[in-house]
Each structure stands twice: as structure tokens, then as C-alpha cells.
Nucleic acid binder design. Structure first.
Lengths: 211, 211
DNA sequence: GTCTATACTTCGATAGAC
DNA sequence: GTCTATCGAAGTATAGAC
């Protein structure tokens, strides 16, 4: 037991810097947070920050790396997905929605999601990540899913890419609505509401396209 | 002919500051633009800015006032809307989409739209405006529209608010996709694409709900 | 690993002469 | 209405002692 004691007895300083930076970035945006402020909250001097991170940008990078890692851990394996479709579109939609929720439903991940939504414009790295991993990739997955449903004669033979957009654009809308517009609302309340909205949307879509 | 001559012979300095600030804010975000930079681009000293605007924030306020005024000018009068519904949902959707496009389809308004998308999180005034005028109000209008269509037996008697979200959330998605994620793309190219996407979406929705 | 001290830059804004 | 000159605050980052 040498140092690392200031309020929280065991957490390493680097981790404290991570947590507090995330907290502040998510609340005020990256540019609006100063290194001084982070240091003050952590309980050390500004200069000590630079013992753990090369600069302010490096803290953000570390947060984003953590986010990307966490997301990569929570995807549904492809084989499971295919088996799930067999149980019918309703079950698949429901399970899919729960997977997304799970990616957001921790206080830490919620903050990072918010940070991403705030900085998506200002930061090219985050923007590119969003486009690729949170928009294009899911759209492709859903296109394949609808393609499979069509082949199994579960739904009408419509353009699977159109269906992917019809389904998934609503999720992006809910994301935008909460993280950009409605953040003052209670998180859990909104999540329950969003889950219900997404279920309604899936039900509406399914009713429109089922055989 | 006293002052106001620097490249552009007739435009008042206050207007130049407005135009150049908008240009810079839309390109880099409000916080990333300094008063010095605006002054340099206009061709005057920083201190002269304060002869025309109280401070930097006041420039943004003036831009937003202009935006709100422009939007208020381009709405469809209620009576016209009702008459338009009579011509059938297809015509109404098409005309509605053209109205939205018209609100964006000038270089100046496009920049303000972009500025709004960038600063919606960082600026409470812009965020509240977005929520009220660009989300809640249109949703209400569309809810009424679907309600009327139901009463006229043009479409199935579904929940009109659900239909409003089904229709309009896609527009918000397209907004988000372009202004936040895809801005590097050519504006006109994307607008044509978005118009087509919105038409496809309307067609899909109509097919699902028509009697 | 943290401290003090400080370099260096940029920012928004004001005072006062012309 | 524009200029010069300048202020004070805040920002990131580094050097070197402990």
C-alpha cells in the first residue's frame, strides 16, 4: 500500500482518471472539459495526469477502445442467429432488441454511448466508428436476416435492404431522440419506453410484411 | 460610400460577420471558431466585431432567429393541407416531402441545418428548439393527418400516433445520417438520394396501411 | 507517482484614439 | 465604425525536485 489512496482506497489513479474523464466528457463534451478539471476531481495536480496518459486526447482514445471492445464482446454469434430465426420473426425481433439494450444497460456503457453521440460530429474517429459499426454493419446483418426470412417464406418477398432500413432506422431514431434530445429524462424510464416503442415498431413492421 | 468595402463592395459589415460566422460555425462547430478567426475572415479587427454584436453568443442567437423565421415562412397552411389530403395519400406524401426539402435546399439554410445538428447537444436553446419544432410539432401534425386519412377511410384504422412515428422517424434518421455522419458527401447528391429513400419509405408504409 | 513552478498559447472582451 | 493596445482568464503541456 503505497499511494493510490484518496477517497477510494484501492482503485489505481489511471483508472480514476478514466472514470472521471468519462463522467465529465459525457456530461459536458470533450472540449468543454479541461485537464485541470479532471485533475481536480481525481484529487491530483494537472501535471500528474501526464504520468498516466500522453495527453487529453489519449484519455478519449482509451475510452473509445474500451467501448469498441465491450461492443465486440456482446454480439450474437452468427450460428445462434440462424437458429433463432427458425423460431419465427417475433422471437427474433424480441431477442435482437434485448441484445441492443444489453449493450447500453450499464451506467458506464450508457455514459460512453452518450459521449459517442455528443462527439460523433466533432471527432472523425468516433464518426467513422459510428458509421461503420453502428449503422452499416447492423444494416448488413439485418439485410441478411430478412433475406433468410424471405427464403424461409416467413415474410413477403420484398427488397431485404429496404426492410433492413425500415426496421433499423427506427432504432437510430430512438438513439438520437434519447441521447441527443431527451437526456435530462431518467435513463431507466426512457429505456423501458424505448424498448416498448421498438417492440411496437417491430410488431407494426411484421404485420405489414408477414405472409 | 464610406466604409463597408473589402472585397464585397456593398454588403454591410454586420451581414458579413453573420455570413462568415455561419460558414465557420457550420464547418467547425461554435466552440472551435474564435472571434479572431471570424474577424480575420471578414477583414476587420476582433474588437470591431463587438460594434455589431454584443458577444460571440449573440452571433449564434441571430443565426438561430433567422433560421426559425425562415422555417416559419415555409410551412404549409392548414387549409391547404386538408384540401391536399383529398387528393389521396400518395399526393400528400409527395408534396409533404417537397416542403421539407425546400426548407433545406439553399446553401445558407443547409449550413444552418448543419449548425443545428452539430450544436444540438452543446446548446440548450438549440436543443429545445429541435425537440419542439422539428420533432414534437411535426409528429403532431402527422398524427392529425393520419387521423384525417382514417376518418376518410383512406387507410386502415390504426393508432394515428404510431403511424406518425412510423412515418416521421425515418425523416429524422435521414437527417441524422446526412448531417451527422455523411456530411463529407456532396450535398445535392445526398439530397436526391434522401428524397428517393423517403419516397420509398412512404410507398412502403402506404402499401402496409392502405385500405 | 506526485508535487511545485512555469512556459507557452489562445481565448473573449474592453478602453480609448482616430 | 475601425483601429491599436492590452487585460485577465483559461487552456495544454513540460521540467525538475522530492
Amino acid at each position: 500500500m503505497k499511494n493510490q489512496n484518496k477517497g477510494n482506497p484501492s482503485k489505481p489513479t489511471k483508472e480514476k482518471i478514466f472514470d472521471i474523464s468519462l463522467e465529465l466528457f459525457a456530461a459536458k463534451g470533450f472540449n468543454a472539459v479541461s485537464v485541470r478539471e479532471i485533475a481536480r476531481e481525481v484529487g491530483i495536480r494537472e501535471s500528474s495526469i501526464y504520468n498516466h496518459y500522453k495527453n487529453k486526447e489519449a484519455i478519449l482514445d482509451t475510452i473509445m477502445d474500451y467501448f469498441i471492445y465491450q461492443l465486440s464482446q456482446s454480439g450474437l454469434p452468427k450460428d445462434d442467429a440462424e437458429a433463432l430465426i427458425e423460431q419465427g420473426p417475433e422471437v427474433f425481433f424480441e431477442t435482437g432488441a434485448k441484445m441492443y439494450i444489453k449493450q447500453i444497460n450499464t451506467p458506464q456503457m450508457e455514459k460512453i454511448w452518450r459521449l459517442v453521440s455528443i462527439e460523433t460530429y466533432h471527432n472523425k474517429k468516433i464518426r467513422d466508428f459510428f458509421k461503420k459499426e453502428l449503422l452499416e454493419e447492423p444494416i448488413n446483418v439485418w439485410e441478411n436476416t430478412f433475406q433468410m426470412m424471405i427464403e424461409k417464406k416467413m415474410i413477403k418477398p420484398l427488397n431485404p435492404r429496404t426492410l433492413a432500413y425500415e426496421y433499423f432506422s427506427f432504432a437510430i431514431f430512438l438513439f438520437f431522440e434519447y441521447f441527443v434530445l431527451e437526456y435530462d429524462k431518467d435513463f431507466k424510464t426512457y429505456m423501458d419506453l424505448a424498448q416498448e416503442k421498438m417492440a411496437n415498431h417491430a410488431e407494426f413492421l411484421l404485420e405489414a410484411i408477414k405472409m
